[in-house]
Structures are given as structure tokens and as C-alpha cells.
Design a protein around this nucleic acid. Structure first.
Lengths: 340, 340
DNA sequence: CTGAAAGCGCTTACAG
DNA sequence: CTGAAAGCGCTTACAG
């Protein structure tokens, strides 16, 4: 894999021109994005270029080594570094290389980035928790750059491959664990409301409660973002309720740590006064003491799987599935106990 | 910066040939490494190529965008992600791109990697905590690829730029903080014994004790690695001493968390029974509760500074200094108190 | 070991 | 909007 079929005779402008039934200069213009070419001619030429897998001499050498762009929202969280670890493992095994950038530092539009990627000989794009919508993603795919998403914020639709954890099942398992301990007043502090993974975890929480015939109290469900400060403020808000919860399912470990910090500041005993379940299961969750009960995502395997799906597409294979979900696992540790 | 002087008229084989007083085919042969060229002719041609800054059309386009290779030992720690964040900030600001790889996944020798980097149009190498020695590094520099190191394991010598924190001063400050609280039995759990940063932190610890006229007890100083398990085992070993320490300076936060975990398991109260100071000050240290007193390294700024030094060298400027040390800062939080 | 000559792949200015 | 013609930068086979 990752090495494009080397036996095909290499396509030249001349061969493309002949098959497309146009002159060499016309093909050259299409290649260079000039606008003095009829749209129908351009389409025909591009079609032939793709079918012959045409690569300019400039890019041909470069593409012996497959390079992909990986764009993350933020580098400095355990979530990203574990996904990244899986990506690097898979690409290293397949002789591909990773150009890493942070979305927050990029000013350019999708179209500009796509053009730069083509100029630089990049072969595909892997976005980790990107906010880009379908129209942005199509920009890349139209130019022959396959795209794979890890935990997209905007669900991309059927023609873009995305990889993530079984968020719904994970949310359900976390909540059922609290139910099994005897909790009935269980709150949920969710991640960014628009993110698919947040919604799925919340739906899992709702499904677990309904499955046991327990009413979902709207005041027990607050969604904002994956930050510690939200954990702190979310708990404060919950504790002001006439009937505060005895347990909280936090949508990630960072929120859970904020909750815990605030609980301790208020003199609550953990887990006796308040049970907490997190989500992610990164090393972060082991630094707390007592250690956090959490839903572990196989982040490294998610990274590997996303990279594998991208390299397959670069190799011209159809993706097995446009959505891959890898199983989560409940890690019962020390932050959960029966209610008083 | 990072954009090579664009006003020079671009050198061609023809211009090189004319100035070198040979034919175009001869220059072409030199360029392609053929061996049917007299050594003296080759030298002359190479000399002219260098002076005109000749770049083949294949590489010319590539080098409009500067690409550097960043190699880390391990992606999944907060240390690396914060350094990486600084590197990405600086490269993004200067229009450069980062090809990321993990040392553990690379099988190739320094010479092989250097050749691949040249083929791929890379312009420099940034190594984060690498074990490579001087001879490896020179391999890159000889081929025109500048190298910058962050926290090298093997001190590289005067002709390679390295960036790190003021480890000695940080170790001294950490230890003095414990001394100021009244501790006299202060132990040190150190990182990898060969790493320069470990040694410097340990020397800072020793300097602080000697500065107050306190004897350094050899049984109080254990060095192994930057892991939680070393924290756990290191504390166990220290507690078996006839006179166990009342405070520990751990060479990083991960060790400190292991120490703390083991202390808690043994029923010690923190910080009353044992004070702990860590090192790094990543978000990891905030997840503990009570929060860890630690020596903060400006990791993001270290990353920025390393990237800046590399881009400068790529631009042909001499480095300001072959060693850059950025100041640490003691963050007094909750894990330190006067001894009982 | 060197270079004149042929040629390849691409681009550009311009006539229609 | 298209392409014949000129040309650019480089490579290769081969004569000396």
C-alpha cells in the first residue's frame, strides 16, 4: 500500500492531450488553472488526467514518498497526542509522512489550502475534530485529495469517511454504571453542543435513564465545552438546584477534573458525597487521586484507523465504510460509589 | 525570514555553465552525481552552483515553502505537546511547515535520513530530546541541513544549537523552597542519568543544599527515568531508610505524581507528612488534588525559540548562540508545607 | 573526460 | 476559446 502502481507508463501532457482530443497547450492551461479554457474542455481534460493518474514532473518525484496533511484544533491535550501517536504509527509502517498543523494558526480558506497541498505534493488530509463543513471537505475531494475525519464537529454526510469511538454506547455505559450503584439523581455535563460526539454521549446518557424508567430532568443537562472551567462552573450551577445530583457523568476527563476540583473546594467527600465518571481515559485521568472512573476511548487505535483509511483512499481503494466506530471501555476506578 | 532572497535572478544550468567555463551537459552531470566528470571540474561547478544558490526546477518550487523535520522521542506526554505547540506557532508565523515523526518508529541511520530529507526538499531538522550524538548531527550539517536540539540527551558540543530551560537554576529554586519551609531531609528523584537536563536539575539540588551548609546524603539521591512507576518505587525505597526524607524534589511532574500516589497508598497526609515539588508545570500538574507545587518550564517558548533558531539558520544567518536557556518559574501550590 | 546535437516535457505569446 | 510555433531548462546518447 501507499506506493502507487509503478508499472503504469507515466502520463505526459502529450498523452493526456491526445486522449482528450485537444492540443498540448490546452492541457497545460488546465494544469495551471488558467481561465481561458472552456468549462467543458477543462472537465474533459481533468477527467483524462485523473484516469491516467497524471502527475507533473515536479510532483512526480515528491510523491514517491506519500505525504499527508494532518490538521488538529489544538495540540496541547492528551486527546490529541494519543490520536497523533496512532497516526504516526500507521504512517511510519506504510512509509508515509505527516505534515502537522494547527487549525487555529491557519488563516487560509479550504480552497487555498487545497491548492497549496497540491502544489506541495500532498496526497490527502486528515482532520482531527475539525469544524469544517461538507462544502469545505468537498473542495479537497474534488481536487483529488481524499479526506478522513476524526470526531468531526459538523457531521460530514455520507461521502466523507469519519472515525470515532462508540460515543453513544460509552455514554450509556457510564450512566448505567452510576445507575447500578444506586444513583437516581444523575446529571450530565456535555461538550460543545454542536459536536457529534457530544450529542452522542448525551443521547447515550438519556437512553440509559429512560431504559430504567427514570425521567430526564432538563436542569440536570448542561452542555458547553471540554474545559476544566466548565466543570467548575457546571458543578456550581448544579449544586444550586433544590435537588442537586448525587452523581455526574462528564463528557470528558478535563470537565471531570474541574468538577472534582470544585467539589473539593466546597468540602465534598469524593466519592461518598458525589460520584463522577469522565470520558477519554487518557493519562490525565490517572493523575487525579482518587483516580477517576472513566470511559476509555481507544484513541491510538482511532488515529491508526483514520490514517489507514486515508492511505487506502490515496492508493485508489474505496473506503470499507464511511463511518468507523471503535469500542469504548468503562474503567471503574475510585471516583464512583453508591450514594449516601 | 524563511523566504530565501527572492530578488536574485534565478540560476540555470546555462548560467552556471558559463561562469564555470564548461558546457551545460557537464553541469547536468555534476548535478546528477554522474561519475564521468573530472574531480577538479566537479569541484569548480559545485562551487559556482553554491555561489549562485542554484536550485533545480524540481526543488525550486518545493522550497518556496520551507519544510522542516521535527523528530520527537514520544508524542504522548504533555511535555512534547507543549513544545510542539510552540514549534507550530513559530513555523506558522513564518510560513514554514513541519513534518513530524517519532524517533521510536524510525529504523534508518542518520545518513539515510539526511539523504531522504534532501530528496524530499526538507531544509532543517529539529530534534526534541534526542539521543543522537555529535557524529550523527554532523551528518546533517555536512549536507547543508541545519540542526537544532531541544533538551538533548547527549550534550552535542559547541557547533550544534540547543535550547532548554534553566534546569540548574530550577532545581536550585525547587530545593530552596523546601529549605525555606524548614525541611532538612530532602531527597531527589532524578530523570535519566545521562540526560543533561537531569544532571543539571540534580546539580541545582546539590547546590541549594551545600549553599545552606547541608550535607548531601547519597542515599537520598536516586536517578532513573521520567516515569510514574519510578515515582512509586523511588518513594518506597526512600521510606525504607532509617531516616526517611520529609520532602522530595522530583525531576518532573510524572515522577511526582507517582510519588504522591504511593504516599497516599501508604496513608501519608499530603503535604503534612511529605512535601513534593515537581518539574515541568504542564496541565498534568493541575490535575492532581491538592495541586502540585512545581517548577514551570516555558515549554511553548522553548519550542518557539528552537524553531526560530532553525529557521534563522535555514535563512543563512549565523545562530546568536549555540545554547539558549529560558527561565523557569516556581509555582507554589498545595503539595508543599513545613515539616511536622 | 568533455561537449555538440538531438530530444523531452512543459510554458508562453499570439494569431485566428 | 483554441492551438501552431517558438522557446526554456534540462537530459541523454555518443563522437572525439
Amino acid at each position: 500500500m501507499a506506493a502507487v502502481n509503478a508499472t503504469t507508463p507515466k502520463a505526459t501532457l502529450a498523452s493526456v492531450a491526445e486522449i482528450a482530443g485537444v492540443s498540448i497547450p490546452t492541457v497545460s492551461k488546465v494544469l495551471n488553472g488558467r481561465d481561458d479554457v472552456a468549462a467543458s474542455t477543462r472537465d474533459r481534460v481533468l477527467e483524462v488526467m485523473r484516469s491516467l493518474n497524471y502527475r507533473s514532473p515536479t510532483t512526480r518525484r515528491r510523491t514517491e514518498l506519500v505525504m499527508i496533511d494532518v490538521v488538529v484544533e489544538n495540540v496541547t491535550t492528551a486527546y490529541y497526542s494519543e490520536v497523533m501517536d496512532g497516526i504516526l504509527e500507521c504512517t511510519a509502517e506504510n512509509g508515509a509522512e505527516v505534515v502537522l498543523s494547527a487549525m487555529s494558526l491557519q488563516a487560509s480558506s479550504a480552497a487555498q489550502r487545497a491548492q497549496r497541498m497540491l502544489d506541495a505534493g500532498r496526497r490527502g488530509l486528515l482532520l482531527v475534530t475539525s469544524k469544517w463543513g461538507r462544502s469545505d471537505l468537498v473542495t479537497f475531494q474534488e481536487r483529488g485529495l481524499p479526506v478522513v475525519l476524526v470526531d468531526p464537529i459538523n457531521p460530514p454526510g455520507a461521502d466523507v469517511v469519519s472515525v470515532g469511538a462508540t460515543n453513544w454506547a460509552g455514554g450509556k455505559t457510564a450512566t448505567e454504571h452510576l445507575l447500578d450503584l444506586g444513583h437516581r439523581r444523575i446529571a450530565h455535563l456535555g461538550g460543545p453542543p454542536l459536536a457529534e460526539c457530544s450529542q452522542d454521549r448525551q443521547h447515550g446518557y438519556v437512553a440509559a435513564l429512560l431504559g430504567r424508567g427514570i425521567e430526564v430532568r432538563p436542569e440536570y443537562v448542561i452542555s458547553r465545552d471540554f474545559t476544566r472551567s466548565f466543570g467548575i462552573e457546571g458543578l456550581s450551577q448544579l449544586l444550586e438546584l433544590p435537588e442537586p445530583p448525587t452523581a455526574i457523568f462528564a463528557a470528558n476527563d478535563t470537565i471531570a477534573i474541574g468538577v472534582w476540583e470544585e467539589a473539593r473546594r466546597r468540602g465534598l467527600q469524593l466519592p461518598a458525597d458525589l460520584s463522577i465518571v469522565g470520558f477519554d481515559g487518557t493519562s490525565f485521568a490517572e493523575a487525579t487521586m482518587p483516580q477517576l472512573t472513566t470511559v476509555e476511548q481507544p484513541l491510538r487505535e482511532i488515529g491508526r484507523s483514520a490514517a489507514r483509511a486515508l492511505l487506502r483512499q490515496i492508493d485508489g481503494q474505496e473506503p470499507d465504510s464511511t463511518r468507523v466506530e471503535l469500542a469504548t471501555r468503562l474503567l471503574v476506578r475510585e471516583s464512583t460509589a453508591p450514594p449516601r
